[in-house]
């Protein structure tokens, strides 16, 4: 039994329900617990990096599409200062997105060293 991000049971997501306007995109989005389950499967099949990705993804499920897109943009080269990257890390950490926060911290350090921060 799988539930969507909204908590709606997948079995209740039917064409009829969509026609009645009862289904939102959150009903057909993945739930963080499902990603954790998939992370465990990936680990059992010799790919801890894929598992780590699924766990970072689980942290992003609760964020709005626009915020996810904005965070991606912030990580592109030359977009953010080291301080901005660290600030993103702190904000993510405060919301429990510790794995993504770690990614931003590493980026802050690496970008500074390699000249990839905003000029």
């Amino acid at each position: 039994m799988t539930q969507g991000f909204s908590g709606k049971n997948s079995n209740d997501v039917t064409v009829a329900a969509i026609r009645q306007g009862d289904i939102t995109i959150d009903d057909v989005r993945i739930h963080p617990e499902t990603l954790e389950h998939q992370a465990q499967v990936a680990e059992q099949h010799g790919n801890p990096q894929l598992a780590a990705n699924f766990r970072r993804a689980a942290e992003l499920t609760s964020m709005a599409d626009d915020e996810v897109l904005a965070l991606y943009d912030a990580l592109r080269p030359g977009r953010s200062s080291q301080e901005q990257l660290v600030a993103h890390a702190e904000s993510l950490e405060a919301r429990g997105a510790v794995r993504n926060a770690e990614l931003f911290r590493q980026a802050a350090s690496a970008y500074a060293r390699r000249g990839l921060t905003a000029k």
Partner: peptide
């Protein structure tokens, strides 16, 4: 690294993008 950055990404932005896709299943 040079070509990577010319492509407007870094390993970290690509890692984040990878997770962004997975976060939407």
């Amino acid at each position: 690294e040079q070509i990577f950055v010319d492509g407007d990404d870094t390993p970290w932005s690509k890692a984040f993008l990878t997770s962004a896709y997975a976060s939407r299943g």
